[in-house]
């Protein structure tokens, strides 16, 4: 996977999380994962389709998701309810939309597919024939990993 795909996601994630959470956001080191990986418990997923295809996963544990949704809404949430799910989905959507605009400006052509959110314990994600690049972010609410797997269409 070309690393240039991931930079727009990293930049957008950093600036948008900083803005909506009004908090210090720290970026960790990028790393590569093999084709099958565990996910932490709450994962928002957005697909890309066009010149390139793939998906972006926003992965965090349940408590982090609840605390992020609470902070974003100015509420005290206690579980992954509809509001928490809608909020994490919207966060993923905002980050992806901004990243895709940047990629469009660089000449890449593709659209977003409708996003989804999955929750549960002991989940794994498996990407066929494509490596995933992961960028961890440390927030006051916990860790969020942006997990990008994109490839050019054959």
């Amino acid at each position: 996977m070309r690393v240039e795909y991931i930079n727009p996601f990293v930049e957008s994630a950093y600036s948008i999380m900083k803005e909506v959470l009004n908090a210090e956001v720290k970026r960790g080191d990028l790393y590569l994962k093999k084709s099958s990986q565990p996910v932490m418990g709450v994962a928002a997923i957005v697909g890309l389709a066009g010149d390139v295809e793939g998906r972006v996963l926003f992965d965090m544990d349940e408590k982090t998701a609840i605390d992020i949704a609470s902070a974003m809404n100015g509420e005290v949430l206690t579980e992954i309810d509809d509001l928490a799910k809608a909020t994490i989905t919207e966060l993923a959507n905002m980050i992806t939309a901004q990243a895709v605009t940047k990629l469009h400006d660089l000449g890449f052509r593709f659209d977003l597919t409708p996003q989804a959110i999955i929750t549960g314990q002991n989940m794994r994600v498996t990407d066929m024939n494509v490596e995933a690049l992961i960028v961890p972010f440390e927030l006051p609410q916990g860790k969020v990993e942006i997990n990008v797997a994109i490839r050019e269409r054959a």
Binding site: V20, M72, N73, G74, E75, T87, E90
Partner: peptide
């Protein structure tokens, strides 16, 4: 009137 910038924007 809302303490959340995110909700205000929505």
């Amino acid at each position: 009137v809302d303490d959340s910038m995110f909700v205000t924007k929505q």
